[in-house]
Design a protein around this nucleic acid. Sequence first.
DNA 1: CGGTTCATTGAGCCACATCAAGAAGTGTGG
DNA 2: CCACACTTCTTGATGTGGCTCAATGAACCG
Lengths: 242, 242
Amino acid sequence: MNLPLIPADCRACPIRHSAVCASADGASLAILQQVKSYRSYPAGTYLARAGEPLEHLSSLVAGCATISKGFEDGRRQTVGLLLPSDFIGRPGRTRATFDIVALSEVTLCRFERKRFEQLLADTPSLTSRLLEMTLDELEAAQDLAVTLGRGTARERVASFLASLARRQRAQTKSAPLSGAVEVQLPLTRAEIADHLGLTIETVSRQMTGLRKEGIIALENNRTIAIPDFSRLLEAAGADPDD
Amino acid sequence: MNLPLIPADCRACPIRHSAVCASADGASLAILQQVKSYRSYPAGTYLARAGEPLEHLSSLVAGCATISKGFEDGRRQTVGLLLPSDFIGRPGRTRATFDIVALSEVTLCRFERKRFEQLLADTPSLTSRLLEMTLDELEAAQDLAVTLGRGTARERVASFLASLARRQRAQTKSAPLSGAVEVQLPLTRAEIADHLGLTIETVSRQMTGLRKEGIIALENNRTIAIPDFSRLLEAAGADPDD
DNA sequence: CGGTTCATTGAGCCACATCAAGAAGTGTGG
DNA sequence: CCACACTTCTTGATGTGGCTCAATGAACCG
């Protein structure tokens, strides 16, 4: 199931300056480099399963994955979208509390749990960096709870597209905020529905609605364009602060 | 609006061993004690407002508060319930992203932001402890997102009652899990509704439903009894792992 | 004992789910 | 290149869980 290990030099890593290792200096980076292992997995792989042991902590180097939980009856709720540089796993817990599922082929930079925890204990700046990332993730989860608890279907879809656009902009470090933006959707309608607590039909209808109002344009099923970001934010029902 | 400052010895503090300071040893505890200030606020006080500066980071010593966000049109979603020993505020951010509202009279152990951040930088164990607490809060927020995204009204209410029961049990360090448990509700129906993304009418109807099935008993508006915790968990739609 | 707040209960309605049928790709084999 | 199966998405028709609106009950208080 797992593809072979691919060694690499941290200095050449695409997420070197945005992942948990961003704060690592020469010495600690050398140790990280020594204990890390790259590994790739095909789309659809469960990188973790809720309730089962998770032996490695990882950074997502390439590809895309979801954090989700399934009910026995088939319902599923996604609570987070993992993009390159995001961290997977929880120091201090040997079992995963959510499923982590690869949406595309993914490459992980993996650390054996014990070693990483030791490194955290020895390297305050690494703990600091992980704290910072965890606080960001907490804020994202709380924002999602607001959207799921009180947002209409339209607001949920608009809010999701806006947050995806923002994250992709941050990743590619490209253009400012305004002007026409293109967004790649790494998820199918079904996966979006599971993220927004809706059905695929409702997601589809809301996308059509936003398109007919000119708030988005559907280039194809996996690409949308946003001619005016502020109109999308308005549809998301958010205050103009983000 | 603010009640007067009340000095206190950290060694006598009720949350000494469960708050962010739990990991502090003699030396760092002495510094914490030096820079902290206790302050109490009446019920209803906004301890923070989304978008506005938050000068102090705090531990909640006594009382109860919510983390929430309001829409312009009056909708409100609560994303967290703060009980004694919980931490308020985010190091590295000068502005609050959520409203923090006191549900009862509360007492905070406050630290001036700059000083606390310096202390974090100087005291790895403090950062570690805060990371651990933040990871717990992240998990709670993600669990809430699952409930809000996919849970029925009945499951939301049952899930809320179960999580409150668990937290109160952890606080009072008392009885095991089974047997009849009494739970104090620190929230009104309206506040519960805002936490669960429901209306007060629906919350009331679901509580009545659970009562008629014998899953809970309503001692009065603010006290419920749980004769069989596993039945409540079943109603919450959770797998039997928590 | 009226006023106020908070909770319960009922009746009707609506946003989104469910059920059902195409349409639009996308890949495979002939 | 087409025929076919398969997956993904869209669109329509109908059903329903929770919201809205409205009234009543219950506790507290001056």
